[in-house]
Design a protein around this nucleic acid. Sequence first.
DNA 1: GACAATATACATACATGAATGTATATTAAT
DNA 2: ATTAATATACATTCATGTATGTATATTGTC
Lengths: 203, 203
Amino acid sequence: MRRTKQDAQKTYDAILNASAALFAEKCISNVSLEEIAKAANVTRGAIYWHFKNKGEIFNALHESVFQPLSEIILQDLHSEEEAPLQLLSNLCVKLLLDITQDTSKRQMMTLFLLHWNYTGDIAKYKEPHLAKKEESLQLFAKYFEKAKADGTLPECADPMFLTISVRCYLKGIIIEYLNNPESIDLEKNAEHLIVQFFRQFNV
Amino acid sequence: MRRTKQDAQKTYDAILNASAALFAEKCISNVSLEEIAKAANVTRGAIYWHFKNKGEIFNALHESVFQPLSEIILQDLHSEEEAPLQLLSNLCVKLLLDITQDTSKRQMMTLFLLHWNYTGDIAKYKEPHLAKKEESLQLFAKYFEKAKADGTLPECADPMFLTISVRCYLKGIIIEYLNNPESIDLEKNAEHLIVQFFRQFNV
DNA sequence: GACAATATACATACATGAATGTATATTAAT
DNA sequence: ATTAATATACATTCATGTATGTATATTGTC
């Protein structure tokens, strides 16, 4: 039953996709490799050929996610057209809307914001994953630094503090939505939620 | 080896405490009853005597937590002394500081905000627990309703919308802190974070 | 107030099932 | 022919739940 390389890639992707959906739904430790195999239409043998164990699947998923966001931010930061806080506000709204519209992104968010928990076999990924997070946090801060530099924010403003504040708010909204989609009509309210929040900066 | 009733109560409490710590640390499904038993200095026999299974322990923990908060809020709402938004702001700060200072409260927050996941045996608790949450959300909204009634907020303000906004922000801060305590010096910044946020309402 | 009778509060032992990892078999590309 | 890409079979571990054992509080009875 040996497949061609493209077929192998397909089963690799199928395993990742199935894992993402199941991990997001049930948390990593409640998903067995047998379940993943079934959902991906393969056997556990195939999984063990492509991945060392469940932890490695999890890690592969993580890597596939954290690149794209950083790229958007870096693009934004090079733009000289719009005010930085306006760009940040837009980015936040975009992130929220993305989650409502893109199943796969929603799954990833659910997995990495809600259902992760680094214990047992996957404990060793905690530090590298946290490091990646920290990196993207630093990028967020740049919006505020730019805003401060161009006088939009007062001298006393602390970019890192404001970054944390925005980040918490955004995270809180996303988590609330993921936990209980009906409680926020995010598609409708995303913009309002963000704009209202940015009022504290007089944007 | 039969113990007196008070002794039995002690082991009951010990099981709950041990469970809280372990659940908060490792997520429910990664904790075995054997582990809980060891941490509580009993055997699994004792656990099965007091609880039907792990899910019932989880549920007992939930019940022990959600009463106290509602009581604080209800007290606040009866107070006529201070402005409602000021009271709400104070409550938020208090909640944040509590978490930094009280280990047991921190554990509970970690469990119910971060490490819950209602799958498998504990799936059946999802709805009742969500209902309790909804209940407390309604209480939060009352602060804004009062503020609107006394003219602090403009006519167009939507209390439920603002409630959700505050709730998300608060949740986001707590989750960020629980995930990574060093990233926020919450003890120092709690008040500032909240006050800054409430500026959007001109408080 | 003494003394069974019984229910209580556990501990221990066992039976079962599920998940993991590995070893081996299979098949088809290259 | 060889090896890459799977499937299958098996061995082991671990957690759960239950059944059973046991000692001691507690309760009713005289």
